[in-house]
Each structure stands twice: as C-alpha cells, then as structure tokens.
Computed example of a mutant assay.
Amino acid sequence: MMLPASTVDIFSDAVLEDPWPTYRALRDLGSAVWLEPTNVCFIGRYADVRRALNDWQVFSSAQGIGFNPVINAAWDEALICQDPPVHTARRKLMMEALGPAALKPVADTIEQRASALVDRIATMGTFDAVSDFALDLPVGVVMDLIGWPHDVRPALLDLASGSWNAAGPANARMEQGLSGLQEMMGLLSNLYDKERVLPGGFAAKLIASSRRGEISRETAIGMLAGYVVAAFETTISAMAAGIQLFADNPAEWDRLRTDPRLAMHAANEIVRMETPLQSFARVTTQDAELSDGSVIPAGTRVVVCYASANRDERQFEAPDSFRIDRREKQNLGFGHGPHGCAGQNLARMELTAVFGALAKRITRFECQGNGVRALNNISRSLARLPTLAVAA
C-alpha cells in the first residue's frame, strides 16, 4: 500500500512549542507517514515504535540516529549509533557504572541532596523550576559519578544544553548545535589525552579501558560525549516538567502528598507526558511491514517518535491526562530494547527522591506566568519556569 504523506514540518517552531496535536494527526494518518519537508518517514503509533526499538536488525542505528549526515559522521563512535554485537560490548562498559548495583551506594547521596534542595525551595518560596531546582541533582550527582574535574563542569553543562539540536535536519538550530558540539568534542579530547578526570569515576574507568586496548580512543571519547549530552538535559527537562505538571494538576499533587510512595509512578508519568527525548532516527535494512499493513521500503530513514507513542490513545487511556497512579505498562520515555536509556535507573532515582521529598514539604505549586520553552530539534525542555512553592 502507498504510504500517506504530509507537508508538516515536525521541526518547525510551531510544532516544537506544542507537538501533541501534530503527532496525533500523523498517528491518525497511519502507522507510517512520509514527511515531505524532511524526506523521512514518521512512525508514531505505540505498537510500531516499540517494535522498531526492539527490532534492531530491521531498524538499524548503525547509519546514525540523527537527521543530517554531518552529525551521523561525527557520532559514528557513539553508543547510540551502534548495533549489536558492537553495541552490546560497549554498553556493558557503561552499565558497570550505571547499573543498579553500581548506583546503590549513590542512593543515600541522592536522598540527602534532594532533602537539602527541598529545604532551599521551601525557604525561597518563589523559584525558577529550571535554574533553582532542576539543575541541582543532575549536575551535582552525575558530575561526581562521571568524575568530571570541577573547573570544566560549567562549560560541560553549557555545551550539553542544546546539543541535541545538532541531530536535527538542516536548519538554524542544527547549525548552532553543531558549533557547540565541536567545542564539546575538543574539550573531551583534551580531558582524555591529559587524563584530567577524577579517579574512581566512570570517565576514569572508560579511559583506563581504552588505555588497555579494549576500546579505541575515538570510541572512548564518543561514549563520553554521548553521556554528557544525554545525562544532563534530559533529566533536567523531566525535573522542570514535573513542577509544571503538578502546578497544572493540583489534585495529582494532593494524591502524591497523601501517598509519597507514588513518587516512582509519578516519575514515570512525568517522563511519559513530556518525553524529554522526542525522537531518534533509524534506517530500515529491508522492507518493513507495520501494524496497519503499510510497508516502509528498505533504506528509508525513519523518525521513531517516542513522544508520539507515549500519547497514543491505542495504548494509553486518556493519554493527554497526567495521572500519577496510571497502571499501563511500559511507556517509551526511556526508550526500549537494546538502546533503552543506560541512565534510566539514575534518572528514576533522582526524580523519585526529589518529588518524594517535595511532597512532604510543599502544599502546592503555582506557575507565575507562562514558562519559556527551549526549542530543540530532538529534546523537549523548558528554559525558564517562575514558580511559587507554598510550604506546609
């Protein structure tokens, strides 16, 4: 069957501000929709997105997960641009630092930092949900876990912010993102060559593995770059989004305050609703038949849209409603299959700790005017969100 086509540009300012109506319209057109402005095929229904994430043999990452050839060449050694078996071996290295066993000693640090953060927010009253709140745990915990030297941390954070833009199609945001990415790669190369990282962290272990010849210098730097980009912006995005969602849904905040054990469920629902990483590309290695019978030809670059899948009414009841006691299984905000987010355990720990702590101290949130979006080709995040926290 012929694939339906659309003239919508999913990377335009208007769509990035509020993508949900566009995603729904594309889902309603079919399992696969050809996007004429970018010459890629959009996959947005839950069943098809999940299948694509699991079936790496047909939906391959090895030709890059971006939408332009420059970024796909630059990220050639990044973990997210590898298929098994290469991906399997490299991911094992990363999971040694980010798996449940490795993160167990970090749990107390996260709880203590979350408690101190909430004390500050309760004292401040009016705060910015991004700069005063969302930056704290991802920066404080992850920077130490990876082992970045203190003097480069501000620069890494600045360079990580907006880096996902480089993975978009040719537009002004992509050009800006590439510029920042080149600077970041230069900084990481310098840290690698001079071994200027803190002992005991993930970066030091990765560099040691490279020195032993287990992975190349380029692979080590590529893996570090992937973690810099993924670790900060996505968790920061979810933290700030959680404040906005609870401000807009006070009954759900009351529910969490009544039962703080729902904090883990709340973390998952925040990620489902906002999906900090909206989509990645894949390339089909053979003709791929989707759930409605449509066939994507071999060699097609596709948009695998996690964000659309997470609002698919075929999978989730009232998908646009924020419900922290939602029981539907497996939202795709952390990906799925071989490329499921390596840092998802850490992200869940941080989100659960901080919203659980807030539930004990804050009676409600009120957004002070409209938040400002940081428009990005790939990620969804806020730049500013002035908020009032009313302490108990």
Rank of each mutant, 00 (worst) to 15 (best):
A288E: 12
P199S: 09
A155H: 08
A231L: 08
A107P: 05
L181D: 07
A102W: 15
A167W: 08
P199Y: 12
S279P: 06
A318K: 14
Q344I: 04
Y23Q: 09
L103F: 13
V86W: 02
Q315N: 13
C81V: 10
L156M: 15
D320A: 12
A309H: 11
V15A: 01
F59A: 06
P19V: 09
N165W: 10
V295D: 04
R272H: 14
A247G: 04
D136P: 02
R257Q: 01
E36C: 04
T234G: 10
V40L: 03
P21W: 01
P260K: 03
R261A: 08
F355N: 00
M223Y: 04
I121Q: 00
Q176L: 03
T234A: 15
V49P: 14
H336Q: 14
A97R: 08
F246L: 13
R90D: 08
I10S: 03
S321I: 06
M174F: 02
V141N: 01
S379L: 07
A374D: 12
K205L: 10
A5L: 04
N377A: 07
G201V: 05
L137T: 09
K194N: 14
G222R: 13
A307C: 04
L26K: 05
F59H: 06
I43H: 07
A107R: 14
R113Q: 10
S131L: 00
D325G: 01
A74N: 03
M184C: 14
T234C: 06
I80E: 12
N376V: 05
K92L: 09
K329Y: 11
E350Q: 14
A102S: 13
A240K: 02
P276M: 14
N72H: 01
T7Y: 02
M2K: 15
N72R: 00
S6E: 06
G337F: 13
V304Y: 04
R257E: 01
R173T: 01
P338S: 10
G177P: 02
M273C: 12
A89Q: 12
D132P: 08
V229P: 02
L35Q: 11
D132Q: 02
L224H: 11
